[in-house]
């Protein structure tokens, strides 16, 4: 059976009139009212997300929980260092991406988890998008479920913020689109049978029906880049982490929904 690829062209946004002006301070453009991606799903898909048994993302969360309590050869399980009272993780996902003072870099959850593995567990780094890294990230993030994002720009993270914001506003790909065109200006509208949301990362890692799997926010970002026929960046790259940071600041106040279901 052979099928031809359907080529979908987006034409509307190329005939925009005015260019977008942003004030170059540290305030992101925040769509109003702020709406999580969940609000753009059908009731059936939302029901799947809130079903704590049938939501397939919990298969990864369960696995992450097992890994969290598993003792590696070095003897230090994640759970040894992170308990309810010592370095608890229940609010962590609301603060990420976060500046790490030891490495002087901006970490997303995946980077922090890998840092703990290498530095504190003497375990090898987990490659991006592997089942184990997804599982640990989903488990960690799901512990902040329901709590609002509180990421703010500081002196240390100002350059990350700017880099992320630039990426968000730069047109790219054969279709010459920027993130802001879809997610700030056209959210709520239809695109190829999909409804464009405000482009928040608060549900990730999320189970996308189309992936038939759990996936990271960076995988979603690379799908958006590919969607405009641009070359996506490597998952876990600093620019995607900076973009993730911009998105988190932009989504301040939205609750963590991991593990979400998306189309």
């Amino acid at each position: 059976m052979k099928f031809k690829l359907m080529v979908t062209a987006l034409i509307l946004m190329s005939c925009e009139s005015a260019s977008y002006t942003t004030s170059y301070d540290n305030a992101p453009t925040q769509p109003t009212p702020l709406k999580s991606g969940t609000e753009f799903l059908t009731p059936e898909t939302r029901a799947l997300q809130s079903d704590s048994f049938a939501n397939p993302a919990f298969l990864w969360v369960d696995r992450g929980e097992t890994l969290f309590f598993q003792t590696p050869i070095s003897g230090q399980a994640c759970s040894n260092c992170h308990t309810e009272s010592v370095r608890p993780l229940k609010d962590s996902a609301t603060q990420f991406p976060k500046f790490n003072s030891k490495t002087q870099t901006l970490f997303n959850l995946e980077a922090q988890i890998n840092y703990c593995r290498v530095t504190y567990q003497q375990e090898p780094q987990l490659a991006y998008e592997t089942e184990d890294l997804l599982a640990l990230t989903a488990y960690t993030a799901s512990r902040s479920k329901g709590r609002p994002l509180t990421v703010a720009v500081t002196q240390e993270t100002e350059s990350n913020f700017k880099n992320g914001r630039d990426y968000f506003f730069t047109r790219r790909g054969q279709m010459n689109f920027s993130c802001t065109q879809c997610h700030d200006r056209h959210w709520g509208q239809k695109l190829r049978g999909d409804t464009i949301s405000q482009g928040h990362g608060n549900g990730f890692p999320a189970y996308r029906l189309e992936w038939e799997s759990l996936g990271s926010l960076h995988r979603r970002l690379s799908d958006c880049d590919r969607g405009v026929r641009a070359e996506p960046l490597p998952l876990g790259s600093q620019t995607y982490i900076d973009l993730e940071f911009y998105l988190a600041v932009r989504a301040t106040g939205l609750a963590v929904e991991t593990p979400a279901i998306r189309r």
Binding site: A54, P56, E212
Partner: peptide, 9 residues
Amino acid sequence: LKTLIQHAM
């Protein structure tokens, strides 16, 4: 009885 299994099918 409900069951869910991780499998790509």
